[in-house]
Design a protein around this nucleic acid. Structure first.
Lengths: 238, 238
DNA sequence: CGGCAGTTTGATGTTACTCAATTTAAGTGG
DNA sequence: CCACTTAAATTGAGTAACATCAAACTGCCG
């Protein structure tokens, strides 16, 4: 298992969530382990956080990919959101110690955990800058969820997959330099299926036709977009 | 057209959004029209608010039913949420002047509009009580959207309708006394269809079987639940 | 009495699911 | 490097869920 010391990549903290919301929370340039935050590693495909489980910490993903999901009593599950480095698990976790979803690692991940009480008090002392940032974060989470709702309710399988990919591509491009339209995408077809509400078999067929038609090619954890214009045209949402 | 004077029913303001979030904002017992809030009426099935339209006000539904929806470029639309009396259109509208959805009246409605700037400043002066309330409101909107996402992604038409009804019933019961398991529900089948991602024809068939099986009966704007236990069993979500 | 909006019903087509078999890819240990 | 194992992806055939189109039916209102 990997080293559990504070991850070097957590300089990322200064861009994503922490930069925007916490503002002056992190001591600039400091690497010391404080008593209110720590880091840990979770291996690929292992659970990170269970639904309704109380936690005194809030979590930010520092490295790797994870996803939030809802598990239905009969075993079916819906992936709600893929977490990328820099992402806060959920904005509402700043104020609540229980969340309605579970989180699982997709790749091996590094997570930063911060004491909620500490984060809250730091936000309160600096709320004129923190409040709008938190509000924006909430608003964008709501908007993302409701747009996906529209995609699942109104769009065909192909459209949904196109929409999912476009959203992910946009987010990946924000944190990685993209060359030759190749996006790192460590998803199994089963994950795509659970995110867009199809079966893995059907996802395979749809990806097959998209490949045949020269629109995109997903293999070996890389999504290569061959015809961006056509991909966007497929996605009537957006 | 109905009278546009401040609606008597807006005593409701003290329970729903305003009571929880605004706290001391409303002058207790006062009926005067202030310069920072006003009321208006929208007839049934007329638009209230268009997506991306900037507004200096935030809105609370005082009377009647409305719904928030997303319109796709090709005309399809997804109903995101039904608004009941006391509901703030969207928590994020407190901080943003544009919203990603549109709103339409289902019945004739009365709406209370409040100047955002004024609401914000009152929240800021009282943020220790307002902030947690706003956070809870955001969290519950996110949770509702993501649970619906799971319903659309993983559940059959019948399950989705059962879920929609159970959610609505819970909310209706919070503000109305329910007798004989009869819930006022002023929805056309087309609205149900657009909320759960089915066609109106299919909704009609599903409602037909639910009626035949003695589970529920929706007609004349009233939902009568005949077998609550069975209805809950249908809804594997929840 | 007609007209209209909403609902119901039937027939048929399409999308997506299920089950099962096969192929491919990725390790793993010798 | 090669057998062996296992997870993932692909393919085919049959089926179920849902959409589409069109017609008939209902209640309601002028």
């Amino acid at each position: 298992m990997k080293n559990v010391s504070p991850c070097a990549t957590c300089s990322r903290n200064s861009t994503g969530f922490c930069g925007a919301i916490l503002g002056s929370v992190k001591t600039a340039g400091s690497n010391e382990i404080s008593d209110w935050q720590h880091h840990f590693v979770v291996p690929a495909s292992k659970p990170v956080l269970a639904s309704q489980e109380a936690s005194p910490d809030i979590y930010v993903l520092c490295h790797g990919w994870a996803f939030r999901f809802l598990q239905l009593p009969d075993g079916r599950r819906q992936i709600l959101h893929f977490l990328l480095p820099g992402d806060l698990f959920s904005t509402s976790s700043i104020f609540q110690d229980r969340v309605h979803f579970s989180v699982k690692a997709l790749t091996t991940i590094q997570v930063s955990a911060m004491k909620r009480a500490e984060v809250q008090s730091r936000i309160m002392t600096n709320f004129t800058t923190a409040a709008p940032a938190i509000a924006r974060s909430c608003a964008s989470q709501i908007e993302a969820a409701e747009k996906m709702l529209a995609a699942l309710g109104q769009c065909s399988g192909e459209e949904r997959i196109a929409y999912l990919f476009l959203q992910l591509m946009r987010r990946i491009a924000e944190q990685t330099v993209i060359r030759e339209n190749r996006y790192p995408l460590p998803l199994r077809q089963q994950h795509i299926a659970e995110a867009v509400g199809l079966t893995a078999v059907h996802v395979s067929r749809i990806l097959g036709t998209l490949r045949e038609r020269g629109i995109l090619d997903l293999s070996n954890g890389v999504l290569e977009v061959l015809n961006m214009r056509e991909l966007q045209r497929l996605c009537s949402l957006n």
